[in-house]
Design a protein around this nucleic acid. Structure first.
Length: 893
RNA sequence: GGGCGAUUGGCUCAGUGGUAGAGCGCCUCGUUCACACCGAGGAGGUCACUGGUUCGAACCCAGUAUCGCCCACCA
């Protein structure tokens, strides 16, 4: 091919242009460059840099027991674009990746994969081999699962997650995330456990963590307490039952969806202003079937227009019951146990023979079968007024559970989060102020934070009755009477962390004192997964074990995440940082939107429409998929659209081909292009326009608006290819015989400057294609090259107006249109024609006429101003009297 | 019930006060000496609706409708 660009044919074979391949392709770029970046440590974090030189990112650690989906690829690409931009802008980017392998999903997966379950009462068995390896993913019945110790169970969790994490890393590398893989962490690893325990102990010391025995939301399937943030309200079918309580003056009807709780009834409650019930306040009624005497009370939380206007208050049917129970000092008569079944013993508050007999029939039943039994009994006794009427109600569910939550009383640990009063300190206001301080992108996402904080109705429940998690690092003394003294927890020294209270022994005790009078017991509960996840800036930054690093990266610059976890992850992280460091955990939060199906529904596995990310990357190429992701603004839901990936692929291929073309002129041969060599007005106009693009794209990226930057750059790149390259190619080729003229050198120099700039502008979105081109003619990685600046381009452009390029482009398009309408090839020569130009445009076209004539193959084109064209809205140019070389007769197929 | 966002050509989306834009798709044509994973040209929209402010509204204000999401709602 070298005979097509003679000026480079005579140059030595080591010139950059000779490094351009004959045939370019995107295939294989991902593997090749991923390996090269790893080998050259292109994205390694230089920890000698100070905090003011660092840009640190608190990357969301994906849940490894799940699978990555298209939404992850989407949002992680947004983060990577920011990381690459900041790195090129000169910041030392701290961009670690963690894995969230803590918590229930992993536990469940291990149970099914290995056929085991955790029984914390069992001793550790060294060298344990699980009964199954690589279960088929289907649920194994609890009865068929082998019980093993907590430590064995945790070991299996760790074994399984290592394999998952390997696959996740492979995907991220393929996607081109510029992560420094030497700074990884797992939310269950020893350092993360130590950080989580240390932070908890400090919360405890400052009075921010406390325990309380209280009614709370409880999942009967997982048998664990659940926090407000983990709730999900779902539609749940039920029935209204109109039930008669027995008053002295006749029946009092209430309506309930949960008749099985009648034995737990402690009062009937109506609004104090409700005329219908005035005469009953202060009296008592007797419950149907169980014949328990309960008072009729007034409380403003009762709503006259709901149901019968008078409610049955049970311990506990819902959160309003809890409120009444607390504020009206009602007795506790719980019948629902932690396993979701009714008490097996007949409660002592059922005193009549008939009532006790009725209850015995319900004892041990699930709430569902107890309800059916109660309804039958009510119907039989005549206390059911009419038949139950179906209703759709909302019930609270644990987000991972499938049965409605019950409310049971238990001892739990809490961290203050502003949801409850705290000794005159207004933590809620402090956290709202932090929300104001944080830069949300887009800004309106702050409202979700504020809504959540304002809607909190309790402190953060962090204890969970599970096994695979970070232990609450406490023991309790056992009195000589054998009672566990929860009020005086035994605290480990921070140097001991992490500890497992079920196998480690507190200072001053020996293992044989475990569980015996005068000895100790370990806290059995683990912390909520968010109690660890809320500390990712501290975990990734090395808080407590690498404080030098921590000082260089904290508070971090950016938290990227989804809008769905503002109330959980973002908020809880702000809480921990505020309490521990009296600061925000990061300055900015970049919130990505959802990926939606073409039919505008959120993509979900159940719909069977999930595309595997790796398959997507393999099919379209990583740059193409990144382009699709980067085309969507932060906070905006985006359609899953293969078409957009194809456009991205086309752009990446165009980058390769246009670069190859420009470099083929010898544009890249000069080590340092001399801006002073750019003398032709068209070349200078192109650079002037590019300088504007650099300014505007930079401004957009600084404002976390990557789509705007991409759009600006992409649009200019296509103008560069379609118009500028076409206009200058004859001039850039130069003459085969002579040394390059000044005009030729001008074109080549401008091409070099433009290509250099455009590659750097596109590098954050298309890291593979741009790196490939960069390697043809530059040293080092484009991803470590400085972000382009407008000033050098303006210096080369002088006072040239970008309008020159626009005018020349329009003149060329007008000539093309003539050929298109004449249905001839674009290569057809226009032997004679006049181009009529609006008056204002004439000087611009004249100044670029040589390139226009050349590119349009209209070597004798005459130019004239035509004032009549000035009037039109389009300011259209017109070709008049065109004579074309007759087209060759086309052979019919 | 409260809140947030969206509604622009067939599709996906830009455009935040000054005469409607892009890409895809479509139509017509061309082309293989950067690029068939191609190029050129063209058609196509009363900017959801109703009022208002303004010389002028896709854009600002008020209201309505539809869609999505968050929160509250278990009698």
């Amino acid at each position: 091919m070298s005979d097509q660009h003679p000026t480079t044919a005579s140059t030595p074979t080591t010139t950059p242009s000779s490094r351009v391949p004959d045939k370019v392709s995107l295939d294989g770029l991902e593997d090749r460059w991923d390996a090269a970046w790893a080998e050259q440590r292109t994205y390694a974090f230089d920890r000698s840099r100070g905090r003011d030189e660092v840009y640190s990112i608190d990357t969301p650690p994906p849940t490894v027991s799940g699978s990555l989906h298209v939404g992850h690829v989407f949002s992680y690409t947004h983060t990577d674009v920011v990381a690459r931009f900041r790195r090129m802008r000169g910041a030392e980017v701290f961009y670690p990746m963690g894995w969230d392998d803590n918590g229930l999903p992993t536990e469940r997966r291990v149970q099914n994969y290995y056929g085991v379950r955790c029984d914390p009462s069992l001793p550790y068995e060294p060298g344990f081999t699980p009964p199954h390896e690589g279960g088929d993913g289907k649920s194994i019945k609890a009865a068929d699962q082998l019980p093993i110790s907590r430590r064995n169970f945790v070991e299996l969790c760790e074994r399984l997650t290592v394999e998952d994490e390997r696959q996740f890393e492979a995907l991220w590398r393929r996607l081109g995330l510029s992560v420094d893989w030497s700074h990884g962490y797992q939310t269950i690893d020893a350092r993360a456990r130590a950080v989580a325990q240390r932070a908890f102990l400090r919360n405890l010391e400052r009075g921010e963590a406390y325990q309380a025995e209280a009614p709370g939301l409880w999942d009967v399937t997982f048998q664990t307490a659940v926090a407000q943030a983990e709730l999900e309200a779902r539609d749940y079918p039920g029935h209204f039952h109109r039930v008669a309580f027995h008053g002295t003056d006749g029946p009092v009807h209430i309506e309930t969806t949960r008749p099985e709780l009648i034995p737990a009834c402690v009062a009937l409650i109506a609004h104090p202003d409700d005329e219908r019930y005035q005469h009953l306040f202060g009296t008592t009624v007797r419950s149907p079937l169980f014949d328990v005497e309960v008072p009729v009370l007034a409380h403003t939380a009762a709503e006259p227009d709901k149901g019968a206007g008078i409610a049955m208050c049970c311990t506990f049917g819902d959160l309003t019951d809890v409120q009444w129970w607390r504020e009206l000092q009602l007795p506790t008569r719980s019948v629902v146990q932690r396993d979701g079944r009714l008490l097996r013993e007949t409660p002592e508050w059922l005193t009549t023979e008939a009532g006790r007999t009725r209850y015995a029939e319900l004892a041990g039943k699930t709430t569902f079968s107890a309800r059916a039994a109660v309804v039958d009994a009510l119907r039989e006794s005549g206390d059911l007024d009419g038949e139950p009427t179906p209703t759709q109600r909302k019930a609270n569910f644990f987000e991972k559970g499938d049965k409605p939550l019950e409310i049971v009383t238990s001892r739990q640990w809490y961290i203050r989060n502003g949801g409850r009063d705290w000794d005159g300190r207004d933590l809620r206001a402090e956290l709202l102020a932090r929300g104001q301080e944080l830069g949300f992108h887009p800004d309106f996402m702050r409202v979700r934070y504020e809504n959540w904080v304002n809607g909190l109705n309790g402190d953060w429940l962090i204890s969970r009755q599970r096994f695979f998690g970070v232990s609450i690092p406490l023991w309790y003394p056992v009195t000589v009477d054998g009672e566990v003294d929860h009020d005086h927890p035994i605290v480990p020294d921070e140097a001991m962390l992490p500890v497992d209270p079920s196998s480690d022994v507190p200072a001053g005790y020996t293992e044989d004192q475990r569980g015996v009078p005068g000895g100790f017991v370990g806290e059995a509960d683990v912390m909520d997964t968010w109690a660890t996840s809320s500390l990712t800036p501290q975990i990734a930054g090395g808080w407590g074990w690498d404080d030098d690093l921590f000082a260089r990266v904290f508070p971090m610059d950016l938290r990227p995440q989804g809008q769905d976890i503002i109330r959980t992850w973002l908020f809880s992280t702000v809480v921990r940082s505020h309490l521990e460091h009296d600061s925000l955990p990061w300055r900015h939060a970049a919130i990505s939107g959802w990926i939606l199906d073409p039919d505008r529904k959120k993509m979900s596995k159940s719909k069977g429409n999930v595309v595997t990310p790796m398959g997507l990357l393999e099919e379209h190429g990583s740059d193409a998929v990144r382009y699709w992701a980067a085309s969507a603004r932060l906070g905006t839901d985006a359609a899953f659209e293969v078409g957009q990936m194809k456009i991205g692929r086309r752009l990446a291929i165009k980058v390769l081909n246009a670069s190859k073309f420009a470099l083929g002129f010898g544009a890249g041969d000069a080590t340092t292009p001399d801006p002073a060599a750019v003398t032709v007005v068209l070349d200078r106009a192109m650079l002037a326009g590019l300088a504007d693009v650099v300014d505007r794209a930079t401004e957009a990226l600084e404002a976390y608006d990557h789509t705007r930057a991409l759009e600006l750059t992409e649009t200019y790149f296509w103008t560069f290819c379609d118009d500028y390259l076409e206009l200058v190619k004859d001039r850039a080729y130069g003459s085969a015989d002579a040394a390059p003229s000044a005009d030729t050198v001008s074109a080549r120099t401008a091409l070099a400057l433009a290509l250099d700039t455009l590659l750097r502008l596109l590098a954050p979105v298309l890291p593979f294609a741009t790196e490939e081109v960069w390697s043809w003619w530059k040293e080092g990685s484009v991803h470590r090259a400085p972000w382009p600046e407008a000033a050098p381009l303006r210096a080369a452009a002088g006072d040239a107006d970008p309008a020159h390029l626009a005018a020349a482009g329009r003149a060329l398009a007008t000539l093309r249109k003539v050929k298109s309408e004449a249905k001839v090839s674009m290569r057809t020569e226009i032997t004679s024609a006049t181009l009529a130009v609006p008056t204002a445009l004439l000087p611009l076209v004249e100044a670029t006429a040589a390139d226009v004539r050349s590119a349009g193959r209209a070597y004798d084109l005459r130019l004239e101003a035509d004032p009549s064209l000035d009037e039109g809205e389009e300011q259209a140019l017109q070709v008049r009297g065109a004579e074309l070389v007759p087209a060759e007769p086309k052979p019919r197929r």
